[in-house]
Simulated assay, not measured.
Amino acid sequence: MSLHVATANRLDDGLVVFLTADGGWSENINDSRIADGKEAADALLKEASAPELDIVIVGPYLIEVEPQDGGLVPTKYREVLRTKGPSVREDLGYQAV
């Protein structure tokens, strides 16, 4: 089983965002629309890469996730860091909230 979500950076503040079921963007990975399988993942990336979104987000791509403890967790360490925010100062990013 290969589960994917679409992620990008929001243009107005640079934060990591995830494509949601209603076509919006959320800072919370658990709000993500999940694609199961290659065809669904391709369709999700196509939607996330729509030209009209160029004024909202930049650099959309897919990441692999797995369900864990009632939520979604990226399978790659790089993406785990992106969901938590800057690692150099704990008073910045999502961990500061």
Rank of each mutant, 00 (worst) to 15 (best):
M1W: 10
S2E: 14
L3I: 04
L3Q: 05
H4L: 08
H4W: 12
H4N: 10
V5M: 06
A6K: 00
A6Q: 01
A6Y: 00
T7E: 04
T7M: 09
A8W: 00
N9M: 15
D12V: 13
D12P: 02
D13Y: 13
V16G: 02
V17K: 00
V17M: 02
V17F: 02
A21Y: 11
A21E: 14
A21F: 13
D22H: 10
D22V: 13
D22N: 12
W25Q: 00
W25T: 02
E27D: 13
E27I: 08
N28R: 15
N28D: 14
I29T: 03
N30L: 12
D31N: 13
D31K: 07
D31G: 08
R33I: 07
I34V: 14
I34L: 15
A35V: 02
D36W: 12
D36Q: 12
G37C: 09
G37F: 10
K38W: 06
K38T: 09
E39G: 08
E39V: 11
E39N: 15
E39M: 11
A40Q: 04
A41M: 03
D42C: 04
A43T: 08
L45S: 03
K46Y: 02
E47Y: 03
A50Y: 09
P51G: 12
P51K: 14
E52W: 15
E52A: 14
E52L: 11
L53C: 13
L53D: 05
I55V: 13
V56I: 14
I57E: 00
V58N: 09
G59D: 07
G59Q: 04
P60K: 00
Y61S: 06
L62V: 02
I63N: 00
E64G: 03
E64N: 05
P67A: 08
P67H: 08
P67R: 11
P67Q: 10
Q68R: 15
G70T: 09
G70D: 10
G71R: 06
G71N: 07
L72P: 00
V73A: 09
V73F: 10
P74T: 07
T75R: 04
T75D: 02
Y77E: 14
Y77L: 13
R78P: 01
V80S: 07
T83N: 05
T83K: 02
G85V: 06
P86E: 11
P86G: 08
D91V: 10
D91L: 09
D91A: 10
G93A: 03
Y94G: 02
Y94D: 02
Y94S: 03
Y94L: 07
Y94K: 06
A96L: 05
A96T: 05
A96Y: 03
V97L: 11
V97I: 11
